[in-house]
Write a protein that binds this DNA or RNA. Structure first.
Lengths: 222, 222
DNA sequence: ACAAATATAATAGTAATACTATTAATATAA
DNA sequence: TTATATTAATAGTATTACTATTATATTTGT
């Protein structure tokens, strides 16, 4: 994956001005990832962001209509990246079981290496997904936003992996529930393991989250 | 359960003045449940709440330090109520399998009847848990709050049910992960089924969420 | 029954947030 | 070079999440 020149392309619905199109746009995305991690989404503001990139609030607003729009953009970028990894790593594999194994690994693993997609730090972005992304869709405007296509990438990822499940066991009733449970669950378990560890069974050094979901998925569809 | 005189007792950590102790307190809790449902947590304010119960903002602040504190209170009330139902319905049952079945049902079912615990509408409260409760613990202050015991009831519920799992299969490695995955997953699936249905496999009339998690849990620990 | 204590309502005020609008300066492109 | 677009700077607004103060009820102890 290293030196491939690939770009994650984000739907124009998800920004006012494309942050890919300028240096300032890059800085906005890049620094917002850092700052949301540091401050948490609630305490992160466009004013602070503007200041810290040597620009100002109103310039940030030209790229994103709101703080929430930026979070949706980051979330979509993440899922586009995951989809890319998913497609790439299951290409030319014939065994459905093997494809599902790879997929579950990608979906439940912690991201520990910044694959340096230009100005986006995937390690930090993954942390935002774990601790903040649920705020993107837990909003009163969810239905309108869903109609506008804000969550299509995520839905497509779930769909793709559900298809692997269906290839393995065409009679299994709940492939989408199983995959969305594994994805969201893995993020939650990572959050719990750091903050509410008694809700989990994580052990230092072992990647129990991946093992747990791998086991759960394959037993459930067996 | 109907005519039993039982009270849910909430730890004093979770309020400034006990809302159980006055008519105003009752109104605050009762109306806030309605309003958070209507407006969503973001648009709900103490000012609006005060006005709508014929009182005012500052009086609400005497019961709860912040909007967030109120959400944590409501969440704890919910889990205390679930714990009560859990203990009640598994009392005198000897079969661990049967106990776990009852537990999973209680944890994953939609609440459709207001069991009229005085001034709290459990149906609406359950909806808040489904769509807003993750905001209670996805906060930068989580570690401090956890130390103060804000989440002990929830943790105890997970612990109790994990013990049923361990009774059935003492060698299963991840009982806590399994139960917290089922609990949080069920809420998520209910939210998705309403707003992002392609992430689920819900069908009108059938309670697929309960069936899905029941099947998943028992297959996983088999 | 009365004073003291307590609870509540009403009002005002503050710093910060999440924006919008306007203008000025700067870079780029025709 | 001029027109165009981009950005920075500044100012302003309604609202939020809270704090503080005082006046008025209500409850409680004696």
């Amino acid at each position: 994956m290293k030196n491939l020149q690939v770009n994650i392309v984000i739907s124009p619905e998800l920004y006012s001005k494309n942050p890919e199109s300028s240096e300032l746009g890059h800085k906005i995305v890049s620094k917002s990832i850092e700052m949301i991690n540091e401050l948490g989404f609630e305490d992160f503001t466009f004013k602070k962001l503007g200041t810290s990139i040597g620009s100002n609030e109103s310039s940030v607003y030209r790229y994103f209509d709101s703080k929430h729009a930026l979070l949706v953009y980051l979330t979509d970028w993440y899922w586009s990246w995951i989809e890319y990894k998913l497609v790439f790593s299951t290409l030319n594999i014939v065994s459905s079981t093997e494809k599902l194994e790879k997929a579950i690994a990608i979906l439940t693993q912690e991201v520990i290496e910044d694959n340096s997609f230009s100005y986006i730090n995937e390690v930090l972005l993954n942390k935002i997904i774990v601790s903040e992304s649920s705020k993107a869709y837990h909003t009163k405007a969810i239905d309108k936003e869903n109609e506008k296509g804000y969550y299509t990438t995520y839905k497509r990822v779930v769909q793709r992996v559900s298809e692997f499940v269906q290839e393995i066991n065409p009679t299994y009733e709940f492939p989408h529930m199983l995959i969305s449970t594994a994805i969201e669950g893995a993020h939650q378990q990572r959050y719990f393991s750091e903050h509410l560890p008694s809700l989990t069974d994580v052990e230092k050094g072992k990647d129990n989250v991946v093992r747990f979901y791998m086991d759960l998925v394959f037993k459930t569809i067996a």
